[in-house]
Amino acid sequence: MSIAIVTDSTASVPADLVDRHDICVVPLQVVMGAQSYDEGVAGGVTPERLAEALREWVPVSTSRPNPEEMLAAYERLARAGASAIVSVHLSAELSGTFESAMLAARKASVPVHPVDSRQVGIGTGFAVLAAAEARDAGADVDGMVAAARSRADATTSLFYVDTLEYLRRGGRIGAAAALLGSALAVKPILEVEDGRIGPRERVRTAAKALARLEELAVEAAADSPVRVAVAHLASPERAVQLAEHLTTRLADGLEGRAVLVGEIGAVLGAHVGPGMVAVCIAR
């Protein structure tokens, strides 16, 4: 039985791993001004262009793939020989993408098993890779789904933002709204908890926030084998420095694996704004 794997563009799976594991990526859309672009495709919005638009207060919004687009991806895979599909997506609490997958699955010509990762960004990506690795090791659909959910449940996603304004505008701030009253006086560290974005800690400066982000990542690793990723938007120096520190401090748990470092895509970037730095620890 040939089992295909589908995810969405917010999962931020590096291109070489997408190719290696033959993962189908369905794009979300970002709307800048009056123009809509698919994320992660040629001619789309680059992170640099997005950051510039946000700084200039150009109206930016995002949208999920509709069920028909998701179904079209499933049917392409079925025609290519897939007998079943595992479809892993970002948290249903933050996007309607999982709902689109559920609706499309009902109409697909082969069995489709949607998985709500309850994560965002590479937190979802690590769950996708867990499913791929399970398949490569001989697991069936149930084993792949279990592997994705287990990895997602054991993942800690933390991030720092220069301002909560972009999250507030997009309606994704959730419990972190409690921080808004003093947003100018603090630098918030946020986390993904049970599929939602909420506040973890407040510190007074960006330097202290990044140092605390490092300490929280080390605590989350807890001397276990881990996979680690650092993401950013228009803040490469901060991201590289954090990755270097974690490479050293978590060397035993990394077991020779590199800390992934990359700039997030336009869809997530639209909600966090320039200066964001995130760290994801998957156990």
Rank of each mutant, 00 (worst) to 15 (best):
Ala108Glu: 01
Glu201Phe: 06
Ala132Trp: 01
Gly171Thr: 06
Gln29Trp: 05
Ser91Gln: 08
Ala239His: 00
Lys187Leu: 07
Val141Thr: 04
Leu50Ile: 00
Pro199Cys: 10
Thr247Met: 08
Gly121Phe: 03
Ala183Gln: 15
Asp194Pro: 01
Ser150Phe: 05
Ala266Asp: 10
Ile197Pro: 08
Ser117His: 08
Cys24Met: 10
Gly33Glu: 12
Asp16Ile: 08
Val31Ile: 15
His232Trp: 09
Arg79Ile: 05
Lys107Tyr: 10
Asp140Gly: 15
Asp116Gly: 03
Ala147Thr: 00
Asp38Cys: 00
Ser150Asp: 15
Val58Tyr: 00
Thr156Cys: 13
Gly198Ile: 00
Arg118Ile: 03
Thr124Ile: 05
Leu90His: 05
Ser95Gln: 03
Gly44Asn: 01
Ala134Pro: 01
Lys187Ser: 10
Pro236Leu: 13
Met144Phe: 00
Gly273Ile: 01
Ala251Pro: 06
Val31Tyr: 01
Ala229Cys: 12
Ser117Trp: 09
Gly198Thr: 15
Arg200Glu: 03
Cys280Phe: 06
Glu191Lys: 15
Val45Glu: 03
His271Glu: 07
Lys208Phe: 12
Ala209Thr: 14
Ala53Leu: 09
His113Leu: 04
Ser235Tyr: 02
Ser63Cys: 11
Asp16Lys: 13
Ala132Met: 01
Glu69Phe: 00
Leu167His: 02
Gln35Glu: 14
Lys107Met: 13
Arg249Trp: 03
Tyr74Arg: 05
Val88Glu: 09
Glu99Val: 02
Pro59Leu: 06
Arg79Asp: 09
Lys187Ala: 08
Asp16Val: 09
Val228Gly: 11
Ser87Thr: 12
Glu219Met: 08
Ile197Arg: 05
His232Ala: 10
Val112Tyr: 07
Asn66Thr: 10
Glu219Phe: 09
Leu179Trp: 08
Ala176Glu: 02
Ala92Lys: 15
Gly125Gln: 01
Ser95Leu: 02
Arg172Lys: 13
Phe159Glu: 14
Val230Arg: 07
Ala132Asp: 02
Ser36Thr: 15
Arg20Val: 02
Val41Ser: 05
Val25Thr: 07
Leu250Gly: 06
Arg64Ser: 14
Gly125Ser: 10
Arg149Cys: 13
Thr7Cys: 03
Glu48His: 11
Leu103Ser: 04
Pro199Lys: 09
Gly33Val: 12
Asp16Gly: 11
Ala146Met: 11
Glu214Asp: 10
Leu180Gly: 10
Leu254Asn: 01
Ala211Leu: 10
Thr46Arg: 06
Leu158Lys: 11
Thr155Asn: 06
Ala222Thr: 05
Arg200Phe: 06
Ala270Arg: 14
Ser117Asn: 08
Val161Leu: 12
Ala177His: 13
Gly198Cys: 11
Ala137Ile: 05
Gln29Pro: 03
Ala104Glu: 06
Arg135Asp: 11
Gly181Trp: 12
Gln241Cys: 02
Pro114Leu: 07
Asp140Glu: 15
Arg79Gln: 15
